[in-house]
């Protein structure tokens, strides 16, 4: 089985977000970048599936050369090779076009990625890739098993989950608890250094959206403390002052 795992490179979940150039550019100073946490779930499950029934796992990132240490980490976790599309991931459609262009050449059985990236939280890429390739896509997938050319999986729906069965190929947006995050071991880190990482140029596209301005949320006012003995007073305040009850 050939699996493609698409990873986004995003600021660490604890990163302080700020902007420069008159709030038109993300401020990378002092920010640590990571593979998206949802993408890590997808990667972990892909590696587990490979360990169970053989095959290959390829990691794909659309991004600049700064992403390479993060791609190497994915190789250290157990992916076999990697592709970096040398371009800034400007909008979801653009990223999806890059993934689809590579998938058309390689005929993957499964294309996995996180349900959403944690920078723009769009949750769009898997659906667009599925549409561009003319194959089914599902998200958010929280359980996945493969039996020959059949996938059995569970998708989270509001208030519960739905179990499904579909034939490969599929594009799936993943989330926990599909797998446990894997931490690379020393041997993985060593072998990752020499695993192939191919850099390709993007395919052309017309940009459909463009961010023109960033903003930070307004600072939160001071918290109003209510003594524990008077807890009931909170309900009064929520009714009369905050007017949310």
């Amino acid at each position: 089985m050939k699996i493609l795992v698409c990873i986004s490179v995003v600021p660490d979940t604890t990163a302080k977000i700020s902007f420069t150039d008159g709030d038109t550019k993300f401020n990378k100073a002092g920010v640590q970048f990571i593979a998206g946490p949802y993408d890590d779930y997808a990667l972990s499950r892909a590696v587990e599936l490979k360990e169970q029934s053989g095959g290959t796992v390829t990691v794909l990132n659309v991004g600049d050369a700064d992403a390479e240490p993060i791609i190497r980490k994915a190789l250290a976790v157990g992916a076999d090779d990697a592709i970096r599309v040398n371009a800034e991931p400007t909008d979801a459609y653009f990223v999806a076009e890059q993934i689809a262009a590579i998938a058309r050449q390689e005929n993957y059985d499964l294309i996995l990625m996180g349900r959403e990236s944690i920078d723009f939280n769009g949750g769009q890429v898997h659906g667009i890739v599925g549409e561009l390739l003319g194959i089914a896509s599902f998200s958010p997938v929280m359980k996945l098993d493969i039996d020959g050319t059949t996938a059995r999986f569970a998708r989270e729906i509001e208030g519960g989950k739905e179990s499904l069965e579909a034939s490969l190929p599929l594009v799936l947006g993943c989330q926990e608890p599909i797998a446990e995050w894997k931490i690379p071991n020393m041997r993985g880190i060593m072998t990752a250094r020499t695993k192939p990482l191919k850099v390709v140029e993007p395919v052309g596209h017309d940009s459909l959206t463009q961010v023109t301005q960033f903003e930070l949320p307004p600072a939160k006012g001071a918290v109003k403390m209510i003594p524990a003995e008077d807890a009931g007073q909170l309900i009064t305040l929520l009714r009369t002052e905050a007017k949310v009850l």
């Binding site: 459609y93 769009g122 769009q124 659906g127 667009i128 549409e131 998200s139």
Partner: peptide, 21 residues
Amino acid sequence: SLGDALAARAAGKLKAGLVSN
């Protein structure tokens, strides 16, 4: 979750610009 999933597929079909949230 339904809205997200169908928005993405519809954007692919229509070649539409898509902004979430």
